[in-house]
Design a binder for these strands. Structure first.
Lengths: 203, 203
DNA sequence: CGACAATACGGAACAGTGTTCCGTTTAGCA
DNA sequence: TGCTAAACGGAACACTGTTCCGTATTGTCG
């Protein structure tokens, strides 16, 4: 999925960012590293060898250390990257599908996020101050995305209106922790069931 | 167990325990490794490099791996070794000093044990089954040692008689966790104060 | 007391790590 | 198009855990 964070003119991140020109190869390699690291973390954990990440990303070791001097920097960046990817999907889905369908598809996407976030949880509780801001970032990005979808669906009369974003966030996280490897089918069905429940009382 | 610290190189007085003949160099090197590992763990943590331990012990790497194939084996052995050393000090002190004085000195010794056990605590909660028996071993060795000292001091009328071994065990552990590095003086004074408190009501 | 197995020892060698360094390439601008 | 600053890549380095085997030590038996 394409990230439209290509322009650094995004003011919402960390206050007034300097209008520094980012070279194209820097962005390209940074993205490749984040994508590769996400995959490697999923299969080998966050302590995976550096070379495994750089090889998959097709970059040299120096490039990784230039952009992510500490391992925690890379881990935190991967987390943010995945949060962004998931949160950004909400508006896209809302534009493409009807309110209830958009909500369903985004919750499926969110379940995927939780499922792939498994390896990161240990690192988040390690006391490294690099991770301090991550929970807040999680909240700050997901809550508006989900609230928007819920409100739209509720206003359209497609789902009941007494459900809170917190409810769905927690429920989705819980549903995304079933057994075994190929649980995609299971989680998917459960999420669908959940939204069907939302739809039921709307009539 | 017992053969780790006591000088079992006495062929005539061997009891009916285990009639396996242990070569002298094996015992020597094992002891050296346990002593060295205890020091290294204290300064560098239980993840300290293998060479640091072998160098300090004056043995080769092969010797370490022959006796402790897994790292958890070494850690558990160090723990037992230190528990034994501390517990075995109780009878010695009881023979050399008066009841109350022996109790005081042994609690000082126990505080030292707790202070040096800091690095091990993380490993103990790692889920490795090698460590499963350690808490029981701790209890099994320390409780009789302390009970003996307390009973002797109480019967001699040197301390009050309403204190339980658990009380002192917990109190000593808590006292042994103060600030900074050179806290030996602090802990020592607090332990002494504690025993003085025991003595007070005995009059 | 001396020779001999059996056993243990030591440390070099190997296969991985994380991290740095610097010659080479590239991107952006004039 | 040329030029310069920035970024790239991967060889090189330092350090890790682990294995292997020639050598040394030990306990015993004649």
């Amino acid at each position: 999925m394409r990230e439209d964070t290509t322009r650094e003119a995004d003011p919402g991140a960390a206050g007034g960012a300097a209008p520094k020109k980012v070279r194209a190869d820097v962005r390209r390699n940074t993205d490749a590293l984040l994508t590769a690291a996400a995959e490697v973390f999923l299969t080998s954990g966050v302590d995976a060898p550096v070379r495994q990440i750089t090889t998959k990303a097709g970059v040299g070791a120096g490039t990784l250390y230039r952009h992510f001097p500490q391992r925690s920097d890379l881990i935190a960046a991967v987390f943010r990257h995945e949060v962004d990817a998931c949160a950004d999907a909400a508006p896209s889905l809302a534009a493409e599908y009807g309110p209830a369908e958009a909500l369903t598809r985004w919750l499926q996407r969110l379940a995927l996020f939780f499922a792939t976030k498994r390896g990161l949880s240990a690192a988040l509780h390690s006391g490294d101050s690099t991770y301090d801001s991550l929970p807040a970032y999680f909240e700050q990005r997901f809550m508006p995305a989900l609230t928007g979808l819920i409100d739209a669906a509720a206003e359209a009369g497609e789902i009941r209106s007494d459900v809170t974003p917190d409810d769905l966030l927690v429920a989705t996280r819980n549903l995304a922790v079933p057994e075994g490897e190929d649980d995609t089918g299971h989680t998917r069905r459960m999420i669908a069931l959940l939204v069907d429940g939302l739809r039921y009382q709307a009539r």
